[in-house]
Design a protein around this nucleic acid. Structure first.
Lengths: 216, 216
DNA sequence: TTTGCTTTCATACAACTGTTTAAAATGCTT
DNA sequence: AAGCATTTTAAACAGTTGTATGAAAGCAAA
């Protein structure tokens, strides 16, 4: 059995990726994958061993694809202002999560794994979530200043990530743009612009803002 | 066949709810549900017709439970300040989404349905998402003021909802509190306090804040 | 106790699942 | 062209799924 990624393996990975993104791991059958890829039923087991291994290969493939195009420090230059750095980070994160046009939507796979872990979640946390979150936290800390506690930095970073993921997976409300399958780069930038603006406005007034006690 | 909710029906709904929340609709089998509820395997089909109908009953049951305890205007009094109103709204939303201790976590069912619609999604959008979102939007509008466009109000409301749902479904990062199965009321309030504070800081400076253009 | 209805039960069924197998086809080296 | 390893194929496998069935049990009213 070959170890490199042959054409057949790639075509299976891509077909499986489309289906996993669209229907999820469990609801996608090997027969569907093979039909979509135009290969025999036994091809998955021959080339990947089993369905679980194929899924891991799909995650790996799309993860590399997303982070090769938009690495963690994409658009961030050392001399940039904290505002500019966090804005660049959010834009790159949005591009990874949304994908462009018909590109794979890595964020959908991520969220699916969050909701219904298949066993790859631990790898994803170590490979993706943790380093990405740590990078974001360091940028958040630059904005909040030295008075911010680790807990505050943590919560604020969570708030930023949450916005990105929800925009990708929100329901269709009224006749608006959300819940589209694919977004153009222009639309992704519009969303990333909002998230950056919203988050920066929050971060720059988080420590000085009034209390939110409902009674007060 | 009875039309009221008998004891057996309730116990099946509750057992199914626990399993659907934990493993999702597809991964949960009727045999598991009946074992958990201590009833015969044919009970689901006898009392609910089929699995899909049972799922709809589960959604309906937990939805009513969550909104009876924490309705849309929970804690909101007419004379309250806009800040106080939106804070109360976020706290109630958090309670509905997280549930308390071992209470049903309605947010998990919601997000599962967002990620992998079973057909109930359209009902949920009409019954839950849309009215809740409209209520939140009206409160956001109060804070942003009359200069805010509908588009701005929409995006900012999305940002608030996104935070709540992500906190419920975030991965376990380091040894922190997230990705717990159950949250105490104290922990939910802590999260809601942060989300309120973050969002209010954002809303009150969104229109006056500087641009987020990465170049600037 | 008998009657008639509702509910429970063990069992069975057809459809679908991931996976395996052994033979056929293909490609590559000599 | 021959030999050999790799890949593809059709067919089958055992296990699980949601659902259906017909008999047994429960139960209230007469």
């Amino acid at each position: 059995m070959e170890t490199e990624n042959s054409d057949v393996k790639i075509s299976i990975i891509k077909a499986a990726g489309r289906l996993f993104i669209d229907k999820g791991y469990r609801a996608t059958t090997i027969r569907q994958i093979c039909a979509e890829a135009g290969v025999n039923i036994a091809a998955v087991n021959y080339h990947f061993g089993d369905k679980k291994n194929l899924y891991a290969a799909v995650i790996h493939y799309y993860k590399d694809s997303a982070f090769n195009k938009f690495p963690l420090d994409h658009g961030i230059r050392t001399g940039d202002s904290p505002r500019s750095k966090i804005t660049s980070f959010i834009h790159a994160m949005a591009m990874r999560i949304f994908g462009e046009d018909s590109e794979p939507q890595f964020g959908k796979l991520l969220v699916r794994e969050l909701i219904e872990p298949t066993g790859e979640l631990d790898n994803l946390i170590n490979d993706i979530f943790r380093p990405s979150f740590l990078k974001l936290s360091s940028l958040v800390k630059e904005i909040l200043g030295k008075n911010a506690t680790d807990r505050t930095i943590f919560f604020c970073s969570m708030s930023i990530v949450g916005q990105c993921l929800y925009f990708r997976n929100s329901p269709r409300l009224a006749g608006r743009m959300m819940k589209k399958e694919n977004f153009s780069r222009q639309e992704i930038q519009t969303l990333a612009d909002h998230i950056s603006r919203f988050s920066l406005a929050a971060l720059e007034n988080y420590l000085t803002g009034k209390s939110t006690n409902p009674k007060g």
